[in-house]
């Protein structure tokens, strides 16, 4: 004879409470921001007309005039990434808690890195425009600082995750700190560091394309100018052109990154 097996019901109170809270948060913020899906739908006609003016057809004759701002955008991203990545490597070594064990060094360093990553590149750029004036230089500075924060953080996390056996092996042979750094830590993190740098370049090329909005050089400046004059067919061409360039760079660099790590 078999007894009936009773499975105790899981307590649902906690789960329901979480679901309700999240639903409340989402609905509350939609209400607070004045988001109304019917209004959006109602405006679709207006939007499609505008998109038509942008892309049907875009002003192809404008391409030769936007090549040089696009090149400037790429140059900004290259230099910003390079400068940021160079400063990031020593900083990451200092900020990692397993190689240098002084707390007063890496705690404030991490705080600063965190602040740099939190301030959006656009805000940095507009600050630099106010200080250094209009132009690509301000944009490069903003990109460099943002990249520095990003790559330092990713790299010091990699340093903390290395195989520590190699470090101990070298130490037991009497190697000094520099040798440990050179032969045990660097070989382990360089592929990842390179990969993060390329990733930073991808992020920067997208950022550089819009930095011109605050006057920090690149194709964004051309875009803002044309939008202000309501040259929508030219705007459409700029969007398509920069999108194509960014997409190609993205595909190439993620292919490189896949081979690295």
């Amino acid at each position: 004879m078999m007894d009936k097996i009773t499975v105790p019901k899981p307590r649902r109170f906690r789960r329901n409470f979480v679901i309700l809270t999240v639903a409340f948060l989402i609905l509350g913020s939609a209400w607070f921001a004045g988001f109304n899906i019917f209004e959006v739908m109602g405006n679709l006609y207006k939007g499609s007309r505008l998109l038509g003016r942008m892309f049907l057809p875009p002003d192809f004759s404008y391409i030769p005039r936007i090549i040089s701002p696009m090149l400037e955008t790429i140059q900004m991203a290259l230099v910003g990434t390079f400068v940021g990545a160079i400063i990031a490597l020593p900083t990451a070594v200092l900020a990692a808690n397993n190689f240098i064990k002084t707390k007063w060094l890496h705690v404030p360093l991490r705080l600063i890195l965190n602040i740099f990553r939190t301030i959006p590149a656009m805000v940095l750029a507009s600050l630099f425009v106010a200080v250094f004036g209009l132009g690509a230089f301000s944009g490069v500075m903003a990109l460099a600082i943002f990249t520095f924060g990003l790559i330092s953080k990713l790299t010091f996390e990699s340093i903390e995750a290395i195989d520590y056996g190699q470090v101990e092996a070298l130490m037991s042979l009497g190697a000094n700190k520099m040798n440990v750094l050179r032969y045990a830590i660097m070989p382990q993190i360089l592929p990842q560091y390179t990969s993060y740098t390329i990733y930073g370049f991808e992020v920067n090329i997208r950022a550089a394309a819009v930095l011109g909005w605050v006057g920090a050089g690149g194709i964004g400046q051309t875009l803002e100018y044309n939008l202000a004059w309501r040259n929508f067919d030219k705007v459409g061409m700029i969007i398509i052109f920069s999108f194509a360039i960014v997409l190609v760079i993205d595909l190439v660099s993620s292919a490189i990154r896949k081979r690295l790590v």
Partner: peptide, 23 residues
């Protein structure tokens, strides 16, 4: 790959400036 600021610009011209365009 499509930059969000440009998307925001497009949506501003669709639903007007303000938070809904950002969303």
């Amino acid at each position: 790959t499509f930059p969000e600021l440009i998307l925001a610009l497009i949506f501003i011209s669709v639903v007007g400036p303000g938070a809904p365009a950002g969303i």
